[in-house]
Design a protein around this nucleic acid. Structure first.
Lengths: 341, 341
DNA sequence: TATCGGACCCAAAGCGCTTTGGAAAAGACA
DNA sequence: TGTCTTTTCCAAAGCGCTTTGGGTCCGATA
């Protein structure tokens, strides 16, 4: 069933039927309904490729599939992608993934040349802005998940990573902790830098000098969480609180604590950032883990909406989201142990 | 730059240029080269959507993105998808992912209605064949990663899961092991059933009665590997060898052995199936893990090729692959301890 | 009564490709 | 020389939609 035969069935022109289905106001509400009705009963679905050819738009969102993805990212990336593709489906957008064996920028070049996608989504940005520059050069619309220094010029969604460590650090300081260590993500990622600064500033605001021994950074694996925590908790002047960049890392830290016989929530307080990936439920841990929470899936869903608005011509200023994670207090945090105990 | 202007530049008709670029033999080799040359210098790329409209083919492969994916599957699914999308790009196919908040079959319905994809890929099949039946009803081409009982009727790629446990079990038996336990995947997955049978038959062939206490099954997580191994290794009549369904599970088993002070490779032998996901490198374990190996990424790449051949009209019989994993012997396997030791 | 502005609808021209059904030129053969 | 194939090319007709640029009808206005 195509437009033409549907129009014939209705005794209307293709134009009218097309415009009726697309909700134009220059066709009366009555016929608009009549057309919608008929479309439903005949099971008419417009041919996507014809529409794409006619409009020049594809309603497809592209995303480069990182082929050398480090293991940690897997569940996080998937979680984000799940949200994105769910919402995109609802909005009648499609998601196309593509990967190159060599450079990620090749993927964008291909997208741009082929013209199969209207917009691409950039994940996992680091300090280098090669990809962003390329996309700007190619004149290919894009939205960034995360931010770089020059984020004024493009559309992005990010969380307040500074706050992710600043808020809980402040809270811990107010509870009397002053030896606060961080188990951070990879140091060339923008979010890790922001978090580091959040931690550092929180201490400085209280007149506490940040201790470089209390800083560890690397891939946010359970393994690293364990290793880093083992190292830090065996320092002579051991910290009374740990800020972890992910729940998975915190799990490693929990394991280290258990092994060292350190009571979580009394002898050491632990806070982590929670992307809410299924494999790591902070609330189910023992003791339940205090977190700053910002579900990645939600970010994926939001970015789909932003993509739609972008393509509808929304102003760039409306397409810059900064989310502030909520701080969820649970049993893994308590007053610092009295010194000497 | 479109066909028309390119044709004008060349002083040829659109027809000729089109057919030249598509390698038809009714245009002379000389002009074919000339056209190819010109296309390159002018940077001509055919408009994908116009082509799709004209041919009715999209050169897009669809895949349903499982929204409620269990945590274990993540890295495996990603690994497969990476191979698929790499090869697809090389072959100039695109990959479209889609997910529904409710049923996976909805995704296929949408694919079929919209007509955006030429073929879909089914992953992770279980015994129920609802999805397969639907796709057959919808007349939508598909390739299955895995198999069900009725696999004669469709195209698939799978590994010999029976052999995955049968081969190493046979080897262990020949080395003198007769108390062999299995840490299997989820019992309603076809591959887990096949593996179970492989193990069972290997024992029976040697006249050994399979011991139900030696069978554990569940999600293939490190956690489960640890728990299952702990249980099994503390049985009164403890096994001398463990077959694990994944390297991640084997990692859990390694942890259990270390905790119990059981020497791997002498007191207990361990073999696992290795999909070669980056997060779990069997060769780097201590001791290096003996595996049956079949990289998932390769399967993804192969399925892209199969998809192309399918769409080119290849015979169904040529589109049924069964791969036999190689058995890689490493230090985690040794002769069984002498009884009484 | 003549004019005008809405409201509603439509014919036809694209979008950029592929494919059909020849046509013209060039050899092959008698 | 005339006929018959091959070889090489092309005009034109789609593919199924959107959009432009009117047209018609009708009530409102003067």
């Amino acid at each position: 069933m195509n437009l033409k035969t549907l129009a014939n069935h209705l005794g209307l022109s293709q134009t009218t039927v097309s415009r009726a289905l697309n909700g134009y106001s220059d066709v009366s509400l009555a016929t608009r309904n009549r057309v919608a009705e008929a479309a439903k009963t005949y099971g008419y679905r417009p041919n996507v490729n014809a529409r794409r050819l006619a409009t020049g738009r594809s309603s497809v969102i592209g995303i480069a599939f990182p082929t050398d993805m480090n293991m940690f990212l897997d569940p996080h990336f998937i979680e984000f992608l799940t949200g994105l593709s769910e919402k995109a489906s609802e909005l009648d957008y499609d998601i196309m993934i593509s990967s190159s064996q060599s450079e990620e920028v090749d993927v964008y070049r291909r997208f741009a040349e082929k013209g199969t996608v209207d917009l691409v989504i950039l994940s996992n940005v680091d300090l280098s802005e090669e990809r962003i520059r390329l996309l700007q050069d190619l004149n290919m619309p894009f939205i960034v998940h995360g931010r770089t220094a020059t984020c004024d010029s493009y559309s992005y969604i990010d969380i307040d990573n500074y706050g992710v460590f600043h808020e809980p650090a402040k809270m811990l300081l107010e509870m009397g902790h002053d030896k606060i260590a961080i188990l951070n993500g990879h140091p060339n990622r923008v979010y890790a830098i922001d978090r580091f600064n959040g931690w550092q500033d929180a201490l400085k605001e209280r007149g506490v000098t940040p201790n470089p021994d209390y800083v560890r950074a690397g891939a946010m694996s359970e393994e690293n969480g364990y290793t880093f925590a083992m190292e830090i908790l065996q320092l002579e002047d051991r910290p009374t609180a740990l800020l972890c960049s992910s729940v998975v890392m915190a799990k490693g830290a929990y394991r280290a604590c258990n092994e060292l016989g350190i009571k979580i929530g009394s002898e050491v307080s632990i806070v982590a950032h929670d992307d809410n990936v299924p494999l790591a439920q902070a609330a189910d841990m023992d003791p339940p883990l205090t977190v700053t929470r910002s579900p990645l899936r939600d970010a994926g869903r939001e970015i789909a909406i932003m993509a739609m608005n972008y393509l509808k011509g929304a102003d760039i200023k409306e397409l810059q989201c900064l989310w502030h994670p909520e701080l969820i207090f649970r049993k893994s945090v308590g007053a610092p142990p009295r010194s000497g105990s």
